[in-house]
Design a protein around this nucleic acid. Structure first.
Lengths: 142, 142
DNA sequence: CTGCATCCGACGGGATACTG
DNA sequence: CAGTATCCCGTCGGATGCAG
């Protein structure tokens, strides 16, 4: 049957949509660099962005407050990740020139809208966790 | 105003939800290794998983078919990524013992349900692309 | 055709120490 | 308090070659 496809797994609506989007990518060249999806996934995929965004979802926080909130997060990575997030417009930085300078970070409107699809993904991850674990045991052990 | 938060950006429902989830993480220790979200993001965040899943969203495909569909994807990375995806139960592998062996990969039910939140994220990425680009120009240039 | 092994460069990210 | 600079190592991933 050659490359005949479109069956096997019931093609849910989301699948069809993604398949469609993907078809578009191949045709008009996804130069990688300016691929919107890649840009977003490069952030959400790294080690700390999600955690930091999630922390800020509860309200604005100061540098050291975030540091205290997230275990194992170093100053170095916090600084760097905050810079990246700010550059992409997900968060905003406000400096208060007090005696010991204090800096506050908060979600922007853009960052806020990202929370929605992100929450959906998080929900999926938690819901599917048992099934994924089971699949791993099956794959590794048997 | 100290740590007083819960304002600045209108706390959308998704934000509140994520903030809630995050609070839970900190309390019951997110050992990283068995964190469901981390498990999922480790996949979606890597270089090829999404592309491959998206390709399979259009229907089952053979090894070399996927290779041809995705530019710049090497055999090495395709093999490795397929293994990881199979291990987590996102895709299924079927071997047809023909003269030159042919192997078909297809989305599982679990993989299919992942497409939904993933499509939402992709949609968000494409919709927000201009705004992100603008933020970058603002940050870099001015 | 499908997959594994090896080599190797690039990059993420941790530890530590120093500055305004 | 909020960064910056340096070192260093583990992993990701590309190139190539070999094997069922």
């Amino acid at each position: 049957m050659g490359q005949g496809d479109a069956e096997g797994t019931a093609p849910a609506p989301a699948q069809a949509e993604l398949a469609q989007t993907f078809a578009g990518w191949r045709t008009k060249a996804f130069e990688a660099a300016r691929c919107p999806v890649r840009n977003v996934l490069d952030r959400t995929g790294d080690k700390w962005s999600i955690l930091i965004l999630t922390a800020l979802a509860g309200g604005p926080h100061r540098f050291s407050a975030i540091l205290r909130l997230i275990p194992d997060l170093s100053k170095r990575m916090l600084t760097q990740t905050l810079r990246d997030l700010e550059r992409d417009g997900y968060i905003a930085r406000t400096v208060y020139p007090t005696k010991p300078p204090s800096v506050e970070y908060r979600l922007t409107a853009l960052g806020g809208t990202l929370m929605e699809p992100l929450a959906a993904l998080v929900r999926w991850a938690e819901r599917s966790h048992p099934e994924i674990e089971a699949a791993r045991v099956r794959f590794d052990g048997g």
